[in-house]
Lab assay of single mutants.
Amino acid sequence: MDETGKELVLALYDYQEKSPREVTMKKGDILTLLNSTNKDSWKVEVKITVNGKTYERQGFVPAAYVKKL
């Protein structure tokens, strides 16, 4: 869990989004878990840094590609 009590997951593999509802992640990324009720895909939040500014983006990733921490 992070400092706000949200559950975290670790990306086990790289994943490139295939639709606007998904998010891209790299192996080793730590993501905030938002919903894990679907056995196939979990909703997560990723933090992306562009030019020194951090943005948050929500979307789905394959459940088999992440592990709860």
Rank of each mutant, 00 (worst) to 15 (best):
M1D: 13
M1C: 15
M1N: 13
M1T: 13
D2P: 13
D2S: 14
D2Q: 13
D2V: 14
D2Y: 13
D2M: 14
E3I: 13
E3H: 14
E3R: 13
E3P: 14
T4Y: 13
T4L: 12
T4W: 12
T4N: 13
G5E: 12
G5L: 12
G5W: 12
G5K: 14
G5A: 13
K6R: 14
K6V: 13
E7F: 11
E7L: 11
L8I: 08
L8E: 06
V9H: 03
V9P: 00
V9G: 09
L10Q: 10
L10A: 05
L10N: 02
A11V: 10
L12Q: 03
L12W: 03
Y13H: 09
Y13P: 02
D14N: 07
D14K: 04
Y15R: 01
Y15C: 05
Q16W: 11
Q16L: 12
Q16G: 06
E17H: 08
K18P: 04
K18F: 05
K18Y: 04
S19P: 04
P20R: 08
P20Q: 09
P20S: 10
R21D: 15
E22S: 06
E22C: 09
E22I: 03
E22R: 04
V23G: 02
T24I: 03
T24Y: 03
T24L: 03
M25S: 01
K26Q: 08
K26C: 11
K27V: 07
K27G: 03
K27D: 02
G28P: 00
I30Y: 04
I30E: 01
I30F: 05
I30Q: 02
L31V: 05
L31H: 02
T32V: 15
T32A: 08
T32R: 14
L33F: 02
L34Y: 03
L34W: 03
L34S: 01
N35T: 06
N35Q: 09
N35D: 15
N35E: 13
N35Y: 06
S36G: 10
T37P: 03
T37G: 09
N38W: 06
N38E: 09
K39E: 10
K39W: 08
K39G: 10
K39I: 10
D40C: 14
D40Q: 10
D40V: 12
S41Y: 15
S41F: 15
S41I: 14
W42G: 00
W42Q: 00
K43A: 07
K43D: 01
K43H: 10
K43T: 06
K43E: 14
V44W: 03
V44K: 00
V44P: 00
E45N: 07
E45W: 06
E45M: 15
E45D: 03
V46K: 12
V46N: 04
V46G: 04
K47C: 12
K47W: 09
K47P: 04
K47Y: 10
K47R: 13
I48K: 07
I48F: 11
I48H: 08
T49L: 11
T49V: 13
T49H: 10
T49M: 12
T49P: 03
V50T: 08
V50I: 14
V50A: 10
V50W: 08
N51H: 09
G52H: 04
G52W: 04
G52R: 02
K53Q: 12
T54Y: 08
T54R: 07
T54P: 07
Y55Q: 08
E56S: 15
E56K: 15
E56I: 15
E56D: 10
R57P: 00
R57L: 08
R57W: 06
Q58K: 07
G59A: 03
G59C: 07
F60T: 04
F60I: 05
F60E: 04
V61H: 01
V61T: 00
P62H: 04
P62L: 07
P62S: 04
P62A: 05
A63F: 03
A63T: 05
A63I: 05
A63N: 02
A64S: 13
A64D: 10
A64H: 11
Y65K: 06
Y65S: 10
Y65D: 02
V66K: 02
V66C: 10
K67P: 02
K67C: 15
K67G: 06
K68Q: 07
K68I: 13
K68W: 07
L69T: 03
L69V: 10
L69R: 00
